[in-house]
Design a binder for these strands. Sequence first.
DNA 1: GTCTCGCATGGGA
DNA 2: ATCCCATGCGAGA
Length: 652
Amino acid sequence: MGTKICMNASCQTTTTHEWKRGWPLRSGGHALLCFNCGSAYEDSLFCDTFHSEEPGWRECNICTKRLHCGCIASKFLLELLDYGGVGCSSCARSSRLHSIQCDEIPNGFGSLTRNNAGDMESIPVESTVAANDNDEGGLAQLCRLIEASEPSLLHPSERANTNGCLGQFRQEEIRHAIGDIGTGFSNMTLPSIGSSKFTKPDNMSSLLDMGDMHSSLSEPSLSMALGAPSGTTNFAPFPGGAVEGREQSKTPSSFQQGQRSRPILPKPSKLGLLASSENNKGSASELRIARPPAEGRGKNQLLPRYWPRITDQELQQLSGDLNSNIVPLFEKILSASDAGRIGRLVLPKACAEAYFPSISQSEGIPLKIQDIKGREWTFQFRFWPNNNSRMYVLEGVTPCIQSMQLKAGDTITFSRIDPGGKLVMGFRKSTNNNEDAQDAQASGLLDGTASGETSLSADGYIGWNNSENHGGGINGDLLQQITAPTEKKRTRNIGPKSKRLLMHSEDAMELRLTWEEAQDLLRPPPSVNPTVVTIEDHEFEEYDEPPVFGKRTIFTSRSPGRQEQWAQCDDCSKWRKLPVDALLPPKWTCSENAWDSSRCICSVSEEMTPKDLDNLLRVSKGMIDPFCFLHKLLHIGEFLSVTLDLVCNTSG
DNA sequence: GTCTCGCATGGGA
DNA sequence: ATCCCATGCGAGA
């Protein structure tokens, strides 16, 4: 790509009298910016200038200066504070001197602050961990749990650090582990994949900003090119260039699409958690977070059901060349017609127009697509006139479908390898083995909203990218385990749409919010003793009973090494100090203060001065409650299982 | 009769 | 109301 293009997504100019160096890219080097954009970046005004309308703005907790969180261009200007919130670099540096040290907090819950500007490689977490006396494993585990549950508390680079350094856990496994929390972390496994070299152009961070912060959960070690504007140096145009620019005049830019797509991806961790009930079933299951399409250039924005839910492992499998840039394009759950004998795969119109070459003739063109085994298939990419529109199909897919032993309900994925623009296809089997379950599952899967936004799909089996299958190609044994259904059943394993279990995205969002609110109130059941399970040399408390709702309390550590819990009386609103392990009912008053007989009536004044109280409330606002946090996590599986049951029952 | 191809239909988003 | 797309269906080989 010989033409320089400004990596400011809202600029993208190719002409400037002087090119400037922007933010450092993960792949090395720096973003290329035109003079104006580069000047703004140099003056630390980039986000103020170009992203003022973007989401992701927060205020420095200390000086209230506006900070654009999650944006690569502001990466150096802010830090995540230990107990939540953000601070501008200067404030954070000064406040760090006073921050609570890791060893002051039980369970090794320590400072998680790290300068965002710090390179991922430069501050290995091991050194941080080793520098204190905490149980390293416990901290590592906790950090992973916290990270999975509260992604916003960690900067992506920190997450990457956590992954990369603490035993090479990857986010996929973290989500996986969270999904299994309800069963006592039974499936927490160490992946064998090391860090790889997939690169996401850092300018994408600015495009995705908050979305990137969240979605990074799904792309931890293998960052990908998502939402990349066509024409950046990181992306080769589609072969022939037919796709580039098509419909551009009519369509929102990928930047805009990214903005529009954000609400769909608010909190992947929560999404992942939602899937726990399903994912508890199989150790091979992975939670999938739908990613906004990389370059939506279609006339219409791609429906979330087509967003690639491809995992990093799958990408790695697809690539084979770690220096390649894998661009997940879209995916489609095979319909009965698709998987049938006709050999025609109906392509979503928007996807076909966005990612496949432009065709003007109905006969279309031969399109070569490589599968995961490296075999190259040639399909006829064509369309049928249909109601003044077009219906795009891939013809001749039967051999390929049969080769991959796909059936209705399975998912076929399309990606692109850059540079080169080679199209690759992968697939994901639906999990259910028996037909009845298949029906039910497929019914859920087939509804785009149900499978997508809620991550209810239990795609635990991954045909070609099982965690234990890193060698590339299809694991023959695994494939053998999939019994090819009869043709008759193949075309009948999806119920009519009217019978499909439906969970609208709004419902899912509602559920997430409900969960988010509820999690603050979760407590382990007081009458139940936990079972201590040891996994990977780490001990976890496992409860057989789902959590109960308790009164919200505040934990703080006003003096080194001393954790305190505070609760507010529901009658007099006075704050009372409690033991850290005290569990309160939803409604609690001073009269129930069994731990401090001198303050068990409302008429007695508070222990804290108003100033202390103010500080307490202020600090606790962004602070994680470390004690009950694990308890919450340990019960999320059961809690969500119950919740989902309720939702499914009401939806059905 | 069977299969393929191309278009039409209609439910659902 | 419009568009998408799963699938039905008829014509022709």
